[in-house]
């Protein structure tokens, strides 16, 4: 296709968005609705995922050491554990620190009780160990148990496993919601374009009569669909920003929970939605056009 044709066809695509502005508005509206729903699903799953991730990080196991070891020895064993495969971090907790922590947990009323124990601390030395990959939880725990001086391990295996499965469930659900909404928006936009295609059938037939190739007829429609998609992608990201800001403000206030800041994924979301919008628009216009490009006899005259 020649450059002058391409320039003309792109111009026609832009023009069509305006000439058929009611259809454009309808398509953008549909896309916006779908994209905002998609965005809400994505934002929810990102936040739940992050929250669960931080829970997992806190899901440390506690390794208790034999009383026969001195604090220095226990510290050396802790560094050995910290160097092991799949261990993210190992923090030594001395007897004394352990007692302090217990006091904090029990509160001031009982703290006084514990003060009596200070001279004869019954708590063992310990270490708090976090993992890199929870899939390898079991094997890592086994390895730590074999370390000299480790008496026993306080593990919460099932909680780790549950958190893992909830995370993957949420990720899966997010993916399917997005995929479903994508298919729905392609279908609805294709239908919206098809409605006006009926009124543009005449134009298409005239194009055929003067010898336009299929691609020449198709390109402006594809550009039009692409533009509508990109516009929808940009607007929906903007809308999501306000929705997110408004809803997270109240969540943070009432639950004291921190959410992922929008800026963390704003660019990714903007580009992703614009790309998705463009793809949706092009696919939808191709679908809605195919019927009119097929040769079905009397193509110039089958218009009234």
């Amino acid at each position: 296709m020649k450059l002058s044709s391409i320039r003309y066809l792109i111009g026609e695509g832009f023009k069509n968005v305006w000439v058929h502005r009611f259809m454009s508005l309808a398509s953008v509206g549909v896309l916006l609705a779908c994209m905002v729903m998609m965005g809400v699903a994505i934002l929810l799953s990102v936040n739940v995922d992050t929250a669960l991730g931080s829970l997992q990080d806190q899901n440390a196991i506690v390794v208790f050491y034999s009383d026969e070891m001195t604090d220095e020895q226990a510290q050396i064993v802790t560094t050995t554990i910290a160097d092991m495969d799949n261990v993210k971090d190992a923090v030594f907790i001395s007897k004394a620190e352990g007692l302090e922590r217990q006091k904090e947990v029990l509160g001031s009323d009982y703290a006084a009780l514990l003060d009596y124990l200070e001279d004869d601390n019954p708590l063992p030395n310990a270490a708090q160990v976090t993992f890199e990959d929870l899939e390898q939880f079991d094997s890592t725990v086994l390895a730590i148990e074999k370390v000299q001086g480790v008496t026993h391990i306080n593990e919460q295996r099932d909680i780790a496993a549950k958190l893992n499965s909830i995370r993957s469930m949420i990720n899966n659900a997010g993916f399917w919601i997005v995929a479903l909404l994508f298919v729905i928006s392609v279908a609805i936009v294709a239908n919206t374009i098809r409605i006006t295609m009926f009124s543009r059938k005449r134009e298409i037939n005239i194009m055929k009569a003067v010898g336009a190739t299929d691609s020449f007829i198709r390109v402006p429609f594809m550009i039009e669909g692409m533009l509508l998609g990109i516009i929808s992608g940009a607007i929906s990201t903007g809308l999501l920003y306000f929705i997110y800001k408004a809803s997270t403000a109240s969540i943070e206030k009432s639950f004291g929970m921190t959410v992922v800041p929008f800026s963390d994924f704003a660019i990714k979301m903007l580009l992703g939605f614009m790309l998705m919008g463009a793809v949706t628009g092009v696919i939808a216009s191709l679908i809605s056009m195919s019927k009119y490009l097929r040769h079905e006899g009397s193509e110039f005259n089958a218009i009234t």
């Binding site: 005449r202 037939n205 055929k208 009569a209 003067v210 010898g211 336009a212 110039f300």
Partner: peptide, 15 residues
């Protein structure tokens, strides 16, 4: 399309 470019088609309803 090439064939049709060798002909000018005139319609009753102008098109």
């Amino acid at each position: 399309p090439k064939l049709r470019r060798t002909m000018g088609i005139v319609f009753q309803d102008f098109r």
